[in-house]
Design a protein around this nucleic acid. Structure first.
Lengths: 193, 193
DNA sequence: GTCTATAGCGGGATAGAC
DNA sequence: GTCTATCCCGCTATAGAC
């Protein structure tokens, strides 16, 4: 295990923290270096640019997310079960890496339109297709109501799940499992008594 | 009607558009001036700083939002009716001014911790208290289920409503009234068939 | 009231010593 | 591999002409 990989991981971790707290644009390379405990020049031995840090952070994140969806929420599952699996995987991912999740949710759409980010956005789209498949399959199977546009329900549940990273903290007594259960309860059965 | 007020309004409008599209931090004063059709120096006859533009934009917005909640969703309404009114007012506000809504949702939490923003954040908190009151009153009245934390339901429906500004466009055939109806349908009765 | 021009600053990135 | 030092750029904000 070469030291260079450890340093790269340190840099990515520090970057994620700062990016999540103050935004990518307002986080300086000097601040990242300071968090890691080196001078800014040293960072450039590990990454060619600040942009490259953002790219690697998000690329790794979304690649892993898509892999987890494919692994734990295959299309062969019954739609309600699959949707629940997607919610659980997402919430677990958010709990495992809340900082990168925040960056992913807050800034992916606004990032520069360079080919690198285009590729990341395509991967993100693929991941989100899993949600839509489960919803549409469920409608066809008659387990979800068909008087609500799939896109609308998708945005609602998707935002509920992902935005939880902004208010549920990992050390809360209210765990991501609690949240997954309540999420499914509300979105499937409603909040009416 | 002095020209100065019109110019100020032009500047605020252009700023909101650019801030929403690319974020406050990455929007330059020069870009705002260019959008208005003047040079950057001219802006400083209307606002003392870029920060002052952001502040006035958000202060006006949140003050108006709170006033609308008080006017159209008073506590005297039955909880479900009040919640629906809050949802409708919010969606109408988002449709009326999608750009400032986007800034309000994306950047309020991350803005500098100066007293000016503190005041705006307090107003925003007051506005969000209306949601929580309606939810808690509904629980006490027995019309909402009490096995889900109010805070959780609040975040879910709040994010569903406000984040719609990122995907529903004002000219969509799917109107904000359609969205309000579907929102209440999902959150009260659920998506299960 | 808007312009041109620029001061002043802080940012990303680089060069070269150690 | 990290440092110091610095280049170069673009930004906010200001000064002063028109």
């Amino acid at each position: 295990m070469p030291t260079v990989e450890i340093r790269r991981a340190d840099i990515l971790k520090a970057s994620a923290e700062l990016f999540a707290a103050k935004g990518v644009a307002t986080t300086t390379v000097r601040a990242i270096a300071s968090q890691v405990g080196v001078r800014s020049g040293a960072l450039y031995h590990y990454f060619p640019s600040k942009d490259a840090i953002v790219q690697e952070l998000l690329h790794t994140y979304v690649r892993e997310l898509k892999a987890r969806y494919d692994e734990e929420a295959p299309r062969s599952l019954e739609p309600r079960v699959r949707l629940r699996a997607i919610v659980e995987v997402s919430l677990r991912t958010a709990a495992d890496d809340p900082h990168t999740t925040t960056v992913y949710q807050s800034e992916l759409t606004n990032l520069r339109d360079v080919p690198e980010y285009r590729h990341i956005k395509e991967l993100a789209d693929e991941a989100q297709q899993c949600w839509l498949e489960a919803i549409d399959d469920g409608k066809r199977a008659g387990v979800f109501r068909d008087d609500i546009p799939s896109k609308v329900f998708h945005r609602f549940i998707r935002d509920a799940v992902w935005l939880s990273v902004k208010w549920r903290h990992p050390e809360d007594a209210y765990t991501s499992e609690d949240l997954a259960r309540d999420c499914m309860a509300i979105f499937l059965d409603g909040f009416a008594a």
